[in-house]
Structure formats: structure tokens, C-alpha cells
Design a protein around this nucleic acid. Structure first.
Length: 476
RNA sequence: GCCCCCAUCGUCUAGUGGCCUAGGACACAGCCCUUUCAAGGCUGCGACAUGGGUUCGAACCCCAUUGGGGGCGCCA
């Protein structure tokens, strides 16, 4: 029996979820859901200065918005906790000491100044910049004495002089020749673990089977391998996905525009669209498919088909996908998303917030929405009466006023049955009486009603506005 | 400087030696549909970084060059 898949997403809390992190989380999550494994969320809050409750909350909020749920982690617990690195300090210390006792790591009392000086000399002599091993062979008596004397010591790993490699699931074999790294620190003199040590200890203890992460961590893997080896633990499988780039092809950062999931949520993107987009940025099924629902993604996903080459974050395509998912959403569901938007846009018309009214509104505007937030302007264009300002529109209205069109419309609208057939007939009759048809009939009517040349279907518009409002606007 | 990764249309990508005069999608342009705008449909524009090999045959395999990216901390 193959062991159950256990994957993790291990962000450091910076207050929000970066889209790159979101994609990493998504890949892990999809893999777990696909294989029936566990998805673990672990917070790397070793850097306490940046790790506040708020920043953790922001992270969890964004993940939840994306509908990425975790099986173990914050708010959930689990058998392999704690899931905050900040609460695992004793574990790292204990594990580092184990290595010291086994002779695989050692205390180093070199000061920053000494190390800096050594580095400079090495540089000048064009030698390796690696740690020179000054404290490598201190006797245990001396170590004991210096520690008892109150000296602060860091713990360094004794790095074997040998080659290492991984068989990365997306990159195949990646090799490092011996001598790539010197004895590196695993536990700082203040007792805090170094990143590579903490992740490795955690991944090992949490029985992580697959490490799916971005390529920026590929180089770190070497040190992690050495640590796994020191502990005699078999490393997990690795899958290094490509990076997400900005338009200038450098790693996506804030200067490229919105990078946090929260920003996209606020802008009016749908989580299912962002998920669809992110999944396709660096992964594909091997066919031409572009549109996926979340269950379809779970079904189709495989880490073997992650892409090697980095990809540019193309907001245009995200926008298109969002429009697509929006149009495909059942109005009854979309209603809940646009209700707050409409409420904010038209606070003076609370009656519009009724589900029935919103569904009717969506019949008119849904096909023209790209973002959820578009509902605001589209609804205003309908419900807020206004005068056209551009010359062309004014001319069209002037021309119409030379005919009895508006008077006829008023007359017919006052008496016709207020339903689709009713006003269709009314419009046609009025057109006949005024001697206009086609564009010359519909355009002035639309302009008179909404002040705009373009917009939703006229018949639907009449229906939405109601007889009273229509007559009011025509008589104005 | 050293190490590692990557390289197909502007962008996301399909492609694993003959099916490729390189397919799809976004964007862009045109047309159609249509009372307008959207949406939708159709058409067009548009790429295998370069140079060497290997092979009967290379987008696909190998090497080099170039270009891009990432990593080299008592940061994560």
C-alpha cells in the first residue's frame, strides 16, 4: 500500500496572500484533493517582527476566499502540530542538539566580526567563501566550558564532501557537485532555527510526502537534502514549479500592480476565475482546454504536467476568464454577490435589493459584466436618469423632437398593457405615427430614457423601470 | 564572482524524432448576428533565440553561445 499523500503550504505571514503563494497553495491543494491526501497549512512565523495576528488573519482570509481549505493547521489543529513555527522553537533546538550529540553538527563561537574578516581574506585570496571550519574540531570539554562561561554559540552542520541530487518531478534530475556549501548554521546563537533547518525538521516531522513549491526554492533544496541525510530521513519528493513573472519578465512584485489575492477580491474578481487562471499559469492538462470549474481541476490535475518555463501574469486573460465565469454563473447565485455592490452604488433605492429585482437586473446586465463590481455602473446607467452630454446624442434627440415620437410613446405607454408584447406594440405604433423606424426609433427612445446610446435591451429596460418611471423620463 | 533553473506567436500554452506548410486561448483587426452595447460565430495577424552536431528526417536528442530568471546570510 502506498502511503497517503501529505502536502503542505508554508507561507510566512505578511498580511496578505501573494498570487504566487496562492498558486503554490492551489497546486498543493489540488494534488491533495486529487489523491485523497492531506493538505497542511503551516505558518512560518519565525520572523516574529512581521508575524502579527492580523497578518495571519489576512492570509487565512484570502485562502478561504479562494475556497482552499486545509486539513491540518491553524484553526483546525491536527496530529502533527503545532502548526506555527513560532510555537516549535523547542523542537528545533532539540533536533539541532541531537545532531550535535551525534557528531553531525557542532557549536561555533565565531563572531560576526571574525566571520566577516575571514570572508574578506578569502575574497582577497580568491578562495572559497565557505566557513573555514575554525570551530569544527573544538573538544567537547572546551565547548562545555565556553557555554557555561556564557558564550553564545551557533550550531553548524558538518557538511559531507559529496555530491547530491534530487529527481525533481518537474525538472528531472538536478545535481550539485561536492563543495557547493560549507558548514552552514542551523541554529542561531539566539536559539532560533535558520529557515532551511526549520522547514526540513517540520516537513520530516509532519511526514510530508511531496514538496510542491516555486522554483526560487530549488537552490535551497541542497541544504535541505543535507539536513535530511543528517537525520537519516528519506527526503520527500520535490516538484519545483516555475515562477510567476510580471510584464517585464522579472519576478512578480508590487511594482507590477496588484499582487495580492485580497486586491483581486476587492476589484470584483471571482475566486473560481482566479483559481482557473492560476492553475493554467504553469500547468496544463495537455490539451486545448481553458475553462475549468474547481471539481474539473481536481479531476484533471497532475504535478507531472507542471510547466518548467516561468510565465507572465496576464491580467487581460484573467479578466476574460472572470467574465466567462461570471456569465456562466446562475443568476440566483450571482445575486448575493452583486447585492452589496448595488447597495453601495444606489443606497437611495433599497427596494432594488430584493432577490427578485436583482435577478431581473441581471437579465439585463450579466452578459455585459466582466467584474462583479461592474454591476454598480451598469445598474446606475439604468436606474439613474440623466441627460446626454455629447453632441451626437443631443442631435439625435433634437431630430426626434421634430417628430411626434415622444408624444406618441407617452400616449401608448399610458394605456398599453405593461408587458413585453404591450410595449413592443406601443413602440411600433408610435414609430408609425412619427414616421420613424429602426435605429431612428430605438435610439432616441434609449437616449431619452437613459441618456446613453448604448446599453441593455430596451424591452428589458422598460420592464425594469416600470410604467411610472418610464413616463416620467419621457415627459421630462 | 560561484551554483542552479529556463528558452515555441506580444502573453498563456499544445507539441516528447516523421501526423507540424507548428495547434488552441487571451489581446488586436475585419466580417456575421443584432434596435445599440455586450455576448456569440467566422476569418485574419502572429512564434520554434542563435550556431554547431546526431539522424534518411529535428520545435522535439546532444554541445556551445546568447538571453532571461532564481539562489548563494546567525532573511524567509
Amino acid at each position: 500500500m502506498t502511503k497517503q499523500v501529505r502536502v503542505r503550504f508554508a507561507p510566512s505571514p505578511t498580511g496578505y496572500l501573494h498570487v504566487g503563494g496562492a498558486r503554490t497553495a492551489l497546486f498543493n491543494w489540488l494534488f491533495a484533493r486529487k489523491t485523497g491526501g492531506k493538505f497542511i497549512l503551516r505558518i512560518e512565523d519565525t520572523d516574529l517582527a512581521r508575524s502579527t495576528q492580523e497578518s495571519v488573519d489576512g492570509l487565512l482570509r484570502d485562502l478561504k476566499w479562494l475556497n482552499i481549505d486545509w486539513d491540518e493547521g491553524p484553526e483546525k489543529g491536527g496530529d502533527y502540530g503545532p502548526y506555527f513555527q513560532g510555537e516549535r522553537q523547542e523542537i528545533y533546538k532539540k533536533k539541532a542538539l541531537e545532531l550535535v550529540e551525534a557528531g553531525l553538527a557542532y557549536y561555533c563561537f565565531c563572531t560576526d566580526e571574525e566571520l566577516e574578516a575571514k570572508k574578506q581574506i578569502a575574497e582577497a585570496e580568491h578562495k572559497s567563501l565557505h566557513y573555514d571550519g575554525t570551530c569544527r574540531n573544538l573538544s567537547s570539554d572546551e565547548v562545555k566550558r565556553r557555554l557555561e562561561a556564557g558564550e553564545q554559540g551557533a550550531i553548524r552542520l558538518r557538511v559531507p564532501d559529496k555530491d547530491y541530487f534530487i529527481d525533481d518531478i518537474v525538472r528531472d534530475r538536478v545535481e550539485w557537485k561536492a563543495g557547493n556549501v560549507g558548514d552552514f548554521i542551523i541554529l542561531r546563537s539566539n536559539g532560533m532555527p535558520v529557515y532551511n533547518f526549520a522547514v526540513t525538521v517540520d516537513d520530516a516531522l509532519m511526514k510530508i510526502t511531496h514538496v510542491i513549491r516555486a522554483e526560487e526554492h530549488l537552490s535551497n533544496t541542497l541544504r535541505q537534502l543535507i539536513i535530511y541525510e543528517a537525520f537519516g530521513v528519506e527526503p520527500p519528493k520535490f516538484a519545483h514549479a516555475s515562477l510567476i513573472l510580471g510584464a517585464d519578465k522579472s519576478k512578480l512584485s508590487k511594482r507590477h500592480g496588484a499582487t495580492s489575492v485580497g486586491q483581486y477580491a476587492e476589484e470584483g474578481f471571482l475566486p473560481e476565475a482566479l483559481v482557473n487562471f492560476l492553475a493554467l499559469l504553469g500547468w496544463n492538462e495537455g490539451n486545448d482546454r481553458e475553462i475549468y470549474t474547481v471539481p474539473e481541476l481536481i479531476e484533471a490535475f497532475s504535478i507531472e504536467r507542471l510547466t518548467k518555463a516561468p510565465g507572465v501574469f496576464d491580467k487581460e486573460k484573467l479578466l476574460w476568464l472572470n467574465g466567462h465565469h461570471l456569465r456562466n454563473m446562475p443568476p440566483e447565485k450571482l445575486v448575493d454577490l452583486i447585492r452589496p455592490v448595488i447597495q453601495a452604488a444606489l443606497p437611495e433605492k433599497p427596494e432594488l435589493l430584493e432577490t427578485e429585482m436583482l435577478v431581473k437586473l441581471l437579465e439585463q446586465i450579466q452578459v455585459r459584466m466582466t467584474l462583479v463590481s461592474d454591476a454598480a455602473d451598469l445598474a446606475k446607467a439604468i436606474y439613474v436618469s440623466k441627460e446626454p452630454e455629447d453632441e451626437e446624442s443631443i442631435n439625435i434627440l433634437e431630430e426626434a423632437k421634430k417628430t411626434p415620437l415622444f408624444d406618441s410613446l407617452i400616449k401608448h405607454f399610458e394605456t398599453c398593457e405593461w408587458n413585453k408584447d404591450g410595449y413592443n406594440t406601443a413602440i411600433k405604433e408610435s414609430g408609425k405615427e412619427a414616421g420613424v423606424k429602426g435605429k431612428n426609433l430605438y435610439m432616441p427612445l434609449r437616449l431619452k430614457l437613459t441618456g446613453e446610446q448604448h446599453g441593455s435591451d430596451l424591452v428589458g429596460l422598460l420592464d425594469l423601470l416600470g410604467r411610472e418611471e418610464v413616463l416620467k423620463r419621457l415627459k421630462k
